[in-house]
Design a protein around this nucleic acid. Structure first.
Length: 794
DNA sequence: TACGGCTGTATTTTT
DNA sequence: TACAGCCGTA
């Protein structure tokens, strides 16, 4: 498997280049000049800066078609990567449509992860543990987050660490982070290895070793391992460099370091790489995405052609102007100005409410009015409307309200089908059958349903397995043989092991379809029965999901194929019927569009989120601002922004100020609405100031600022627009943004310490600081070991 | 082993 | 407030 044989290594060359060369190019006709340029500039590096709604997918798919049609590459020589399966699917379909034929051979169009699995299966044995002969095997399993966490927990406990104080979750986060940066255990900088109780570095190493012993990889490994192979085996890298004649990357602003390295390595030869993205829509910094990748593109690839797609086909001019106004507050942008030929339409609507409930009530009424078309607009169906929130807990107010008024809604996001407990359990059974050495799967199901095999019994199996150097299932069998387990548990375990063995034989029996087999497994194991006997309200739904799971098997040849697919695809394709308003987070809304969009909860602390600002300072605010930009640009015709003066947070009433982003909305494109029930004038009018006391006056002042556009804050903003971010520090915002100016620290300042994490300064003593750390308690540390949260290198 | 009450904590999420 | 994860008890 180590040697590289082109004849069988690459599947699917279904279109010969010669046959394609003379074809006409009608697909170019529908493109605007910029899109056309992006399609026709085929050689060398190209950066396609595609603003929201500018037809980026069209340009990208047409480019692929053009490459094929002009004979530059065969379908299997084009590497096209996306982040989500949805995007990959869409590209595949659209390429097929444009080409007017089914493209059998685009085996290298897929997500980063899917493509890496393919690559890694070919070269798995090159990944090993130094100093041992342990290596990965090409039939490795891909662990889901649950398995990963279970494994880490074992390691943490084995290391004698108190996993209450130091949750395995946190360690998982650290490791994930390192993998995103393409750091193998030996590459983790010493300064970072001390995270998590000082043991993260050592635990990471153990974890990687354990994974290989289990012949398993986690999601991060898929990229990390392939990058490692490319870095250490130049011959292999070169072969792929030659094979992939053209590389295309979607959502480039979302790439992390590992993905970036992966791309650079693969494009290193011919540099025919086309990256598509929008720096203004980079909203995944918190999970490792580096906006810097797209900002640096021209440096990374000297001589790159940069094409800007700026003609927007989605929104009205007012909406675009509002979005531009907000995003102008960010520094270091590549710069784009969206324009449109669309009718002027309505201004962005801004409205403030007394509290979150009123906001939900008002939006509910608005939606009903829009449905009827009584608001002067054309009537809109519920499918045309969406509510986009910053954090999922905000959804509750809307769900409550919509339930009481009987307005149909759907929540997008949330737990995915394949992440549900019953689905994971069922799949763990399948895994045990198809690969009897899958310890983690066995651990998951050994006592599900309850078989009287608790911690104690499981411990014994683990020990037996370790002592004999065999997988857990085998260990369990040995334990029974040696009579190390007795009574009910022993009998039940025997039944389970016999079952697994029997099902394993059936899997090899051609007369039984894998669908029947799946049903047999779920029945005979008692798993279905477990839910049938369960009287909680969720049980029927879970049984329903299990049925759906079995149905999904129809699309696959066998269980193994299905499991491989599922480990990479976590889609939620439940197509509910009927017109419904969509409720989702801003993150989930990226890439979508709706005629009418509601953006509630624009309050400082909620949006921009306090946590984001605390942890990432100015960078955090900028990412939040991009989120605002994404939100506004989802709207085609009507965009309604709102905020509430009071909100229940964790059961307590809190009052807050309108979001700083509201200050940044350009006056000319905003229409400030008066909430019903608050007669006596709009914002800033005496009536309202009178009706709201105390804290409300300050809200009022801010509202007036947003409304009248002549306040000092507003003028300051105008002066700085396009220059510096407008956000002025507020008392409520604790991070000290500029460390240069803060050579001496102050009490109350948020800081970051390499070892102890984030904390707040509670005392000063010469060059020492007393800091109350979020996680590590109060400690005295030397001042030079702490940095401002936004200086933290990750 | 299994359940109920207690405590601590509380973005954003794909693969 | 709400929920998950832990501990103590039956």
């Amino acid at each position: 498997m180590n040697s590289f044989d082109e004849s069988d290594a690459f599947e699917g060359a279904s279109l010969s280049s010669r046959a394609m060369a003379a074809r006409p190019q009608p697909y170019l006709d529908g493109l605007n000049p910029e899109q056309r340029l992006a399609v026709e500039t085929m050689d060398g590096p190209v950066l396609m800066l595609a603003g929201a709604g500018t037809g980026k997918t069209k340009a990208l798919t047409t480019r692929i078609v053009h490459l094929l049609n002009t004979g530059r590459a065969r379908p299997n020589e084009v590497l096209a990567v996306t982040f989500t399966n949805k995007a990959a699917r869409e590209m595949k379909t659209r390429v097929g449509t444009l080409l007017g034929q089914q493209v059998e051979g685009m085996p290298w169009l897929g997500t980063f992860h899917a493509i890496c699995v393919k690559l890694l299966r070919r070269h798995a044995e090159l990944i090993g543990i130094p100093g041992t002969d342990l290596t990965l095997n090409s039939n490795f399993t891909i662990l889901d987050t649950d398995d990963q966490l279970r494994l880490l927990k074992q390691l943490v406990q084995a290391a004698g660490i108190d996993d209450k104080r130091w949750p395995a979750r946190q360690l998982a986060g650290v490791i994930d982070h390192w993998k995103n940066r393409a750091w193998t255990p030996d590459k983790v900088p010493a300064a970072e290895a001390g995270a998590y109780n000082g043991k993260a570095g050592a635990l990471y190493k153990q974890y990687q070793r354990r994974l290989i012993e289990l012949n398993a990889v986690d999601f991060g490994d898929l990229l990390l391992h392939v990058v490692t192979i490319f870095q250490t085996h130049d011959d292999i890298l070169q072969q792929y460099q030659r094979w992939f004649k053209y590389i295309l990357v979607d959502e480039y602003q979302d790439t992390n370091v590992a993905q970036y390295l992966w791309l650079r390595l693969l494009a290193g030869g011919h540099k025919n790489i086309c990256c598509v993205g929008d720096d203004d829509q980079s909203i995944y910094g918190w999970r490792g995405a580096e906006v810097g990748n797209i900002l640096r593109f021209e440096k990374d690839f000297p001589g790159a052609h940069v094409v800007r797609l700026e003609q927007n086909y989605r929104s009205t001019p007012h909406i675009l102007a509002a979005a531009s106004g907000v995003i102008a507050g960010n520094e270091g942008r590549l710069g784009k100005e969206l324009w449109t030929e669309a009718q002027e339409g309505e201004k962005v609507r801004l409205i403030g409410h007394w509290d979150g409930e009123e906001e939900a009530r008002w939006i509910g009424e608005e939606i009903e009015a829009m449905q009827r078309g009584t608001r002067g607009q054309r009537p809109h169906g519920l499918d045309d409307m969406a509510i986009l929130v910053r954090a999922s807990h905000q959804m509750r107010a809307f769900e409550d309200r919509f339930l009481t008024i009987g307005l149909p809604y759907r929540v997008i996001g949330g737990p995915r089908f394949y992440e549900r407990m019953e689905i994971r359990d069922a799949m763990a059974y399948f895994r045990c059958v198809t690969s009897p050495s899958d310890d983690l799967a066995f651990e998951r199901i050994v006592n599900t349903p309850k078989r009287g095999l608790g911690d104690k019994a499981q411990q014994k199996m683990q020990v037996t397995a370790r002592q004999n150097g065999v997988p857990l299932i085998e260990g369990a069998r040995l334990l029974l043989e040696d009579k190390g387990l007795t009574g009910k548990g022993a009998r039940e375990l025997q039944v389970l092991l016999d079952g697994l063995a029997r099902w394993g034989r059936m899997a090899g029996d051609k007369s039984i379809s894998h669908i029947e087999l799946a049903e047999i497994i779920l029945d005979e194991s008692g798993y279905t029965e477990m839910w049938q006997n369960d009287k909680t309200p969720e049980a029927p739904g879970r049984l329903e999901n299990l049925k759906e799971l079995v149905k999904a098997l129809e699309n696959f040849e066998n269980l193994t194929g299905f499991l491989e697919h599922v480990s990479l695809i976590m889609d939620n394709e439940s197509e509910e019927s009927g017109e419904k308003v969509s409720i989702m987070t801003l993150h989930a809304a990226k890439g979508l569009e709706f005629p009418a969009v509601f953006l509630p909860g624009w309050e400082d602390g909620l949006f921009p989120s306090q946590r984001s600002m605390d942890e990432s300072g100015l960078k955090g605010v900028e990412e939040e601002r991009r989120l605002a930009y994404v939100g506004i640009t989802r709207a085609e015709e009507i965009c309604t922004i709102s905020f509430a003066g009071n909100r229940r947070v964790f059961g307590q009433w809190q009052s807050s100020l309108p979001s700083r982003f509201i200050d940044e909305l350009p006056e000319d494109h905003v229409d400030v609405l008066t909430p019903p029930g608050l007669y006596g004038g709009g914002y800033g009018a005496a009536g309202m100031a009178g009706s709201m006391g105390g804290v409300q006056n300050s809200i009022d002042a801010r509202v007036q600022e947003a409304n009248v556009y002549n306040s000092p804050g507003w003028k300051r903003m105008q002066a700085r627009a396009g220059n510096r971010p407008t956000s002025q520090p507020r008392e409520s915002t604790s991070p000290v943004i500029d460390m240069a100016a803060a050579s001496s620290h102050t009490v109350g300042e948020r800081v970051f310490h390499q070892k102890f994490g984030y904390g707040e300064i509670v005392g000063l003593e010469g060059d020492k600081l007393e800091i109350a750390f979020d996680k590590a308690g109060t400690k005295k540390v030397v001042a030079r070991f702490v940095t401002s949260p936004d200086d933290v290198p990750f």
